[in-house]
Amino acid sequence: MPHVKPRKIVIDTDPGIDDAIGILLALASPEFSIAGVTTVAGNIGIETTTRNAGRLLAFAGREDIPVFKGAAAPLLRPGPEPLNLHGKDGIGGVGLPAPARQPESRSAVEWLGALLLKEPAGTVDIFALGPLTNIARLVLDNPDAAKRIGRIIAMGGVIYEAGNVGPRSEFNLWADPEAADVVVSSGLPLVLVPLDVTRRVRATREFTATLSASGKPLASMVADLIESYFETSTHQESRPLHDPCVMLFALAPDLFRLEDLRLKVSTGSTEQAGALTVDESGTPVQVATGVDGSSALDLLARTLASF
């Protein structure tokens, strides 16, 4: 089989327990070459999300990957309160080392623009795991660079089901709906992985036990992270593994059902903020609307156990 060159990616993230799982999955995947990690406020404040990104990279021994601090607040409105389900440290209290490398002095958006202008057009993908503030700011401030993005794969939104912060709103888009509107309406190549899909990817305690038994450090850490993501000590199924679905889609798109939908983003009241509407006058977006959840979990386990 011919060697396939790893795809260059940037991970834009607000770690976050499920962000952490997604980052560790990307680190274990030879299909990806991670150019850098950009951080954004979301699950918790920017200082903590940035520190958590550095801690994850230190744990994995990947101090070669730079971290760039991004937006501390949404484009136009106050930021959300931190999500309690991720714990005070944003990462479930799981033991991680201190960052081995300080965040870079350049801002996330400045660095991302320079990277996209340096690399051949279409060769850098962005995996967006949090609010879309950094990407929106890039679109607004440096459109020539933004046009060179290969593809954005973003965890966000909900199409046919109920939201998780409002009747029709999902947290990442709700946290900065103006940014979501900028990115969705930009016409850039975009794949959305919404709650309709991520709610179908939940781990069992048997799954985490298998990861722990593998003896592989990244697999064991993911097992600990998922354990912190169960609702109670007796619950047999974890909360949805939202953000790893971005990496899983990039690794195995055949496990997902895609629909081409025309979408609009609500920038209205708090209750409706970030809600997606399918509308003929909206912008064409590829949306994952189905997934083989058990096969996705198998891929997660195999990738982590092979690293």
Rank of each mutant, 00 (worst) to 15 (best):
S107K: 04
P244Q: 11
G45I: 07
L218P: 04
D292H: 11
G150I: 11
P15L: 11
M247K: 01
P78H: 13
F207I: 06
L297C: 09
T123G: 01
I9L: 10
T283W: 03
L190F: 09
E119A: 11
S294T: 15
H235E: 13
G293M: 04
P120F: 07
A20R: 04
G166V: 14
N134G: 08
H242P: 00
R137W: 02
T48V: 15
V265D: 01
D64P: 06
V4S: 12
T234W: 04
E280A: 12
V139R: 11
A145F: 07
A72M: 11
A275M: 02
E178L: 02
V4W: 03
N172L: 01
E178S: 13
S33P: 02
F171E: 04
I152G: 05
T277V: 15
D14V: 10
G87N: 04
E161K: 14
G45L: 14
T13F: 02
G150K: 08
H86R: 09
E47Q: 15
K88Q: 15
D141V: 07
F207A: 06
E231M: 13
S228F: 12
L112M: 14
P74R: 03
K216H: 07
L195F: 06
F127S: 09
M247E: 10
I44G: 02
S33F: 15
G282S: 09
S29N: 00
S214I: 11
K147W: 00
L297F: 14
A175F: 07
A98K: 15
S266A: 06
D243V: 15
G282Q: 05
V222Q: 06
L132P: 00
F127R: 06
A73G: 05
V182E: 03
T204P: 00
L248G: 02
A213V: 08
A53G: 13
S186A: 14
P189N: 10
W111A: 14
A100D: 14
R257Q: 10
P143G: 05
V4I: 11
I44N: 10
V285G: 02
D19V: 03
R137L: 15
V184M: 04
F32D: 05
N43K: 07
L116S: 02
D279Q: 08
L297S: 07
E31L: 00
P80G: 13
P80S: 15
I135N: 04
L251G: 05
T133I: 06
T289L: 09
L255F: 09
D18C: 14
N134T: 06
E206D: 15
G290A: 14
D141Y: 04
L255E: 05
C245F: 06
A175N: 08
V291Q: 02
M155H: 03
I17H: 08
V193C: 08
R239N: 14
T39N: 14
W111Q: 12
A136P: 00
G42L: 09
G61S: 08
A128V: 13
S306D: 12
T39F: 03
L173P: 03
K88M: 05
L297T: 05
E110A: 14
T267C: 13
E104P: 00
P66V: 03
P177G: 02
